[in-house]
């Protein structure tokens, strides 16, 4: 049944995209929820991760080059997160708009530097040997990298979810979302929390870029595409929570993938339509934390 196979392929693609989106959007949501900074340079971090994958591994990744790329994107993400934390710190008492404009400026600069470094061509990178082909299960063949991606991204998503919802570090995160000043008052250095959140959020974005490189292929403009998807996920999921973006990311992964397969010309309308439909039913997103505590 080819139709069923196409549908299954589109849905598994959607799952892979959705999990990638979650990892990207979780960083955005954490940074906004905890530090009240809308980081519009988040898409640039994703794109840098994808470019680093290509730069280190070339068009054909090997396992050692993939390992080096993972180290490189984590180091780069941490450094970029620290820098963003320092740059936005002086604006912490100013409006959201000014912080958004600052990160927008950083995103423009980053996009220009990336296109100067890597050119305007699409920089495709193929996964390492064991993951390059397809797997066939009962007559249905599927790219093995995407299947592995679903596994790895699910693990990473689970780790993020568990850290935020179940550990004492996560309790600190959630407490900061709820009442930042009170967290400072009980003796936690807010600068440390700030830096930590930016580093974690940025590393998640660059890692997602590395994982997504064989699917999306690094190219100019990918940064805004990903940024918008992540913003939509965060708006629908609710800011500062982690469960909301997970559900929203999985939803929009399906909309992206199945929508592009069924109505290729109308994918962007479909995305906006879903966004509008959710917001009409739940104007504050699916799982927005009520101020002062979790629901």
């Amino acid at each position: 049944m080819p139709t069923a196979q196409i549908a299954l392929t589109a849905m598994v693609n959607g799952l892979a995209i959705g999990l990638l989106l979650f990892i990207t959007a979780a960083g955005l949501s954490l940074i906004f929820g905890m530090m009240d900074v809308l980081n519009l340079a988040h898409g640039a971090l994703f794109l840098t991760g994808a470019y680093l994958a290509w730069w280190i591994g070339g068009e054909q990744q090997t396992w050692p080059s993939l390992g080096r790329a993972v180290v490189a994107v984590v180091v780069f993400g941490a450094a970029a997160g620290g820098l963003l934390s320092l740059l936005t710190a002086p604006l912490s008492r100013r409006s959201h708009l000014e912080q958004a404009l600052l990160t927008l400026g950083i995103a423009l600069v980053a996009a220009d530097v990336l296109s100067a470094l890597f050119g305007d061509d699409v920089r495709a990178t193929e996964p390492p040997a064991g993951l390059a082909g397809t797997v066939t299960v009962a007559g249905w063949s599927y790219p093995s990298y995407r299947l592995a991606l679903v596994g790895v991204a699910a693990l990473l998503a689970a780790a993020v979810y568990w850290t935020v919802e179940r550990t004492s570090l996560g309790a600190l995160f959630r407490a900061t979302v709820g009442d930042r000043d009170m967290v400072a008052a009980v003796g936690v250095d807010p600068r440390l929390v700030r830096g930590g959140v930016f580093v974690l959020g940025s590393v998640l974005a660059t890692l997602a870029g590395l994982l997504g490189a064989p699917i999306y292929h690094a190219r100019p403009g990918l940064d805004t595409t990903i940024l918008v998807l992540a913003l939509v996920v965060v708006v629908v999921g609710g800011l500062g929570s982690i469960r909301g973006p997970l559900i929203a990311a999985l939803l929009f992964g399906q909309v992206e993938s199945v929508g592009r397969a069924v109505l290729p010309g109308l994918a962007s309308f479909l995305l906006f339509g879903t966004l509008a439909a959710v917001l009409v039913v739940r104007p504050r997103g699916l799982f927005t934390l009520a101020p002062g505590g979790r629901r």
Binding site: L91, E98, L101, L102, L104, G105, I106, A107, L108, V109, A110, A111, D112, V113
Partner: peptide, 12 residues
């Protein structure tokens, strides 16, 4: 874009 991005940062 580089000049404009820097302009953004400076303006803010």
């Amino acid at each position: 874009p580089l000049a404009l991005g820097l302009l953004f940062v400076l303006v803010v």
